[in-house]
Simulated scan of single mutants.
Amino acid sequence: MAKIGFLGLGLMGRGMAACLLKAGHEVTVWNRSLDKCDALAALGASVAHNPAGAAKEADMVISMVADDGASEQVWMAEDGALSAAKPGMMVVECSTISHVHVTRLAEAAKAHGVHYIDCPVLGPPASAASGSLVLLVGTDADVLARARPVLEVLSESILHFGAVGTGTSFKLINNMLGAVHVAAIAEATHLAHKLNLDPDTLVAAVESGPCASRHTVRMIRAMAHNKLSDQAGLAIGLREKDTRYCMAMAKAHETGLSIGETAYGWYKEALSSVAEEDDSAMLEVITKHNGFVPEA
């Protein structure tokens, strides 16, 4: 069994860390708010008071934090995990961060003599807790082979895209595509409400139609009835960040994303009112923008 440091115990991180403990790994956890470590400590985790403490003696350190700033802090600060890294340690960044930051972090890892694994994930908190995430990996094949026994505990599928940065490239594209789906289904639902379409029939039509996907189906089941989804998904604020990172990546590669930019505009507008809510809150933003709020 491996010695693993785990940084960040939000909705996703605490489920992932719990899976590693249940699989028999020796896990040391750290979170900015230390009280979030209590439940993992009850499962047998050790608790570190800073990221360096979680990395000390670890074979692998995994991070699941919110954004570039948080990632930089847990890895590259004076008390960050890299400051305590032993040669050959595996550094696994599961956070959704920018492509630019991946490059910077991978270079810092190399300078410390450790192996960087670009490893954002697909799946909701329930999948994190059940060990059924999809991992989007960018790293050398031999490094992935070493890490695979641990990563398999967290996942139902490991997709190796290639070199460092490729996993994050796809994750940002995927989350931008999700923003397009959500904005489109919210606009469509708003129009359906104005046209007095029966909510249950609307759901059935979308579910059985050619535009049905896991994402649009989850959204329409909530939006048709003018409520938030009862399945926890990505918060509006996090998807805004991910889509913004994707826009920057596209610009750096001289590629226009006009549809993505339109969807991003809705997410940017949503930040002031529903940043902490699930994607399904986008309907509220669009209806208020258009001056029409349907009856509950």
Rank of each mutant, 00 (worst) to 15 (best):
N196H: 14
L43A: 10
S229M: 11
P199Y: 11
A111K: 08
H215Q: 13
D68L: 14
L177Y: 09
E93K: 01
G123S: 11
R221A: 09
G113S: 10
M282D: 01
L133A: 06
C119L: 12
G15F: 01
P199N: 07
E295F: 01
C94E: 03
L257Y: 00
G8V: 11
I236G: 01
V274Y: 05
L159P: 00
G209H: 12
P125N: 02
Q73V: 13
R32C: 04
V92G: 02
S280C: 13
T255W: 01
M16W: 06
T28G: 01
Q73T: 15
G265W: 01
A281H: 07
S208W: 10
G178A: 15
I286A: 00
W75T: 14
G256K: 02
P125F: 03
L105G: 03
C211T: 15
F161N: 00
L197I: 15
I158A: 08
G265N: 07
R14K: 15
V47I: 15
C119G: 06
R146Q: 15
L271R: 10
S258A: 15
A205E: 05
G237S: 07
R244A: 14
I286K: 02
E240H: 04
V293P: 00
D38C: 08
A183M: 08
E156T: 15
M12H: 03
R218C: 04
C119W: 07
A235S: 12
R214I: 14
E261W: 00
E152H: 02
A296C: 06
D79K: 06
Y245M: 10
G291Y: 06
L159S: 08
T255M: 11
K194Y: 09
T139G: 10
E240P: 00
G131I: 15
Q231R: 12
L133M: 13
G123E: 05
R214H: 12
